[in-house]
């Protein structure tokens, strides 16, 4: 039973990371119907940049710098890889260009930080606390709280500020937003910046409990994509539920079945959702206007 609780808790914490990345996919999808397939690399860059800043700034002071770096990285991805494709109404150009940029970021990171996995110092004690017999790392609570705080902050920005409202308006009806004086291509850039910022933040959240390095992002980005599909590309609650579902099922399979099978339930879940509810568990069914 203790092990079970332990698996659930660490499943939830890794699931929240998936949810945060998936939330980032949703941000850009809402405004531009495009996704950054290099989202995993945005996470990785956040983690390795954070790692390099740690000795100078320490964990907490490093966070705002990493957030700013994430914003900037998102702007670069959008300007280089997406803006032209969107302007030309190219349907798939952005798919290739965001994947390509992801590969480039990964190679650059390999050259700077090397190919080996690095140890990211934990800001919290690394001795597990015992709750109901289960051994839980303090960092796992920080991941949960941090991921929720980030999603909440973005939601508040969207609801309370004029720029956030402009983001929602653009997501609702881009043409009508233009009539309000909203520069919609600029809003798409902003949504990419915020998306990469959430990913970079997820990177420094998860780095202390996982291995840090150039290759850490690819699998996370892919799994988070599965979560975005499972939860629905339009539902914030959906990615949280989807992320936690995937996180827990991975941990359970890894422990009770075999570590090698840990990735299977997530992919199986993805296939199942696609077969039964193609718009995701919480996605709004697309209504075609006649």
């Amino acid at each position: 039973m203790d092990v079970f609780i332990q698996l659930v808790v660490s499943g939830i914490s890794v699931g929240m990371i998936y949810a945060t990345i998936a939330f980032g996919y949703q941000l850009t999808f809402a405004t531009s119907r495009t996704l950054n397939f290099g989202q995993g690399e945005a996470l990785m860059l956040g983690a390795v940049v954070g790692l390099s800043l740690m000795p100078v700034l320490g964990y907490w002071a490093m966070l705002p710098v990493v957030l700013a770096f994430g914003l900037l990285q998102g702007v670069v991805v959008e300007r280089l890889g997406v803006a032209r494709a969107v302007a030309q109404k190219s349907e798939f150009g952005w798919v290739m260009s965001t994947i390509a940029l992801g590969v480039i970021f990964k190679n650059v990171a390999e050259n700077i930080w090397g190919r080996d996995d690095l140890k990211f110092p934990s800001p919290l004690p690394e001795t597990p606390v015992v709750i109901a017999g289960a051994h839980i790392l303090p960092m796992e609570f920080l991941i949960l709280a941090g991921a929720l705080a980030m999603m909440l902050a973005v939601e508040l920005f969207n609801r309370r500020t004029i720029w956030g409202k402009a983001v929602v308006a653009t997501a609702n009806d881009s043409d009508a937003a233009g009539l309000m004086g909203i520069n919609t291509p600029q809003i798409v850039t902003l949504s990419y910046a915020m998306s990469s910022m959430t990913a970079a933040f997820a990177g420094v959240l998860i780095a202390p409990v996982t291995l840090t390095g150039a290759t850490m992002g690819t699998a996370l980005g892919l799994k988070a994509f599965a979560v975005a599909i499972i939860g629905g590309l339009t539902s914030g609650l959906g990615v949280i539920v989807g992320g936690i579902l995937l996180g827990i099922s991975e941990k359970m399979t890894g422990y009770y079945l075999a570590t090698g099978y840990a990735d299977v339930p997530g992919l199986f879940l993805l296939l199942l959702v696609l077969a039964i509810r193609p718009d995701g568990l919480f996605g709004k069914r697309a209504i075609k206007k006649v």
Partner: peptide
């Protein structure tokens, strides 16, 4: 073409 998921007040503000 009102912004369906935003409130009346937010629509006007925009």
């Amino acid at each position: 073409r009102v912004f369906a998921t935003l409130s009346v007040e937010d629509n006007l503000t925009l």
